[in-house]
Design a protein around this nucleic acid. Structure first.
Lengths: 224, 224
DNA sequence: TGTTTGCTTTGACTTGGATCAAAAGAAAGA
DNA sequence: TCTTTCTTTTGATCCAAGTCAAAGCAAACA
């Protein structure tokens, strides 16, 4: 978030920021709760989930480091936010943050850009939820994690990732049951598309092959 | 879009705007095409859809009057955009629009707000696609159309709406097949939750009952 | 007026993923 | 070391929605 702020803006931000820590499983906020801050993930992973009256759950977003949480101009949380790993967030009280947004258009622009990226991600997820088969969903999820990882490290064809979610959380993210997630993970292993190391580690010998299994329009897809 | 612009900004916008008309079924842009304008729907309805290599399609958004199309700072369309009814769009060439966004923070703020609303809508749709049953999907869709309609006319318990989509388009929006859409529409009719008039008209005798069938957490859900 | 063309409905059958149930690991504490 | 607890895997069965196929229906056209 702060990455693109000008030096003087950054100073002003410094003054109203504070850090909060959460342990695995801890709630950050519940949907509908009043929320008087906005925040940015420093380390760890948080989930945004919606729950229906009868308990059906759908994760609608994953917050990874540098992702933004909260909505300027709204006082309540729209979703349940939960720490899925140990989590450090950098928070800003909402009022001063909003005031600064009015003064420094830089921040508003940066926020617009991030929001548009999230909107694109949400729409990619709509395709996944609406039209992909279970195997493709899992492959897509792993491929996205892998791409996000390799983006930082330079593109390599082979990758190691840490899946930060349990099978149940993956199920909630992908619109499946945890049993189906488990079965399809086993199937991808059987087919040599992934190799699991420990409970959370996944080695991807051929990212292109995994993307193929994800049903993605193979090539490119880079817009920017 | 222009609703919240200040008078002088509005004048500046006037100078770079132009109108374009599309007939039912006409493409506005294809995914990946260069796109040198942004636009706002004046009348009619357009769809945003994603298509997989083997032809599976998912509609990821519906543009109704006043909705915004395009992304400042990106030269290509991310989705196929199609006129689902006759359509009039108010277009702005991208370059001058971007220049104005830098000068007038009002516009950027307004755009941020609209984008955040779209993001919320996309996430509500993720819950629908990932977790709702066919009947609930249809009920949700009709209820959303009805709410959008009544929002303009003052809340009434009973409503008439025009569904702007064919069965196939509804299927693409809801992550179903057109046969399932047809069957569930028939079922909702049988149960008295809707009464169809002609091919496109739907009368909703009890919106609350329809929301109930949509599986929505009944009450409120108004945030803003 | 009959014919084409594009929806929409309905029926019969199949299937991918859900559900129910139980066992097997793995980490944490006693 | 032995429970306890949490998570994951595997198996057996079921069902909601998909698929395939055939009518219906209504507007548009010739």
């Amino acid at each position: 978030m702060c990455a693109h702020a000008a030096p003087d803006e950054l100073l002003a931000l410094e003054e109203i920021k504070y850090y909060r820590n959460f342990c695995v499983g801890q709630p950050v906020v519940w949907a509908g709760d009043p929320m008087d801050f906005v925040a940015s993930v420093v380390t760890g992973v948080a989930s945004l989930t919606q729950t229906m009256a009868d308990g059906r759950r759908q994760m609608v977003g994953l917050l990874l480091p540098s992702d933004f949480l909260g909505r300027p101009g709204r006082g309540q949380a729209a979703y349940d936010v939960t720490a899925v790993t140990d989590l450090v967030m950098c928070c800003f009280r909402k009022k001063p943050f909003e005031a600064m947004m009015v003064k420094t258009p830089h921040i508003a622009h940066r926020l617009l850009d991030m929001t548009l990226d999230e909107l694109d991600a949400a729409r990619e997820w709509m395709l996944l939820l609406g039209r992909k088969r279970a195997r493709e969903k899992i492959a897509s999820f792993l491929a996205i994690l892998a791409r996000r990882e390799t983006a930082l490290q330079g593109m390599r064809a082979t990758t190691n990732i840490e899946v930060p979610l349990t099978r149940e959380e993956m199920a909630d993210y992908l619109g499946l049951t945890l049993e189906t997630v488990s079965r399809q993970m086993t199937a991808l292993k059987r087919d040599g598309l992934i190799i699991t190391t420990g409970k959370r580690g996944v080695h991807i010998p051929d990212l292109a092959a995994l993307q193929e299994a994800a049903g993605d329009d193979s090539d490119g897809e880079m817009l920017s």
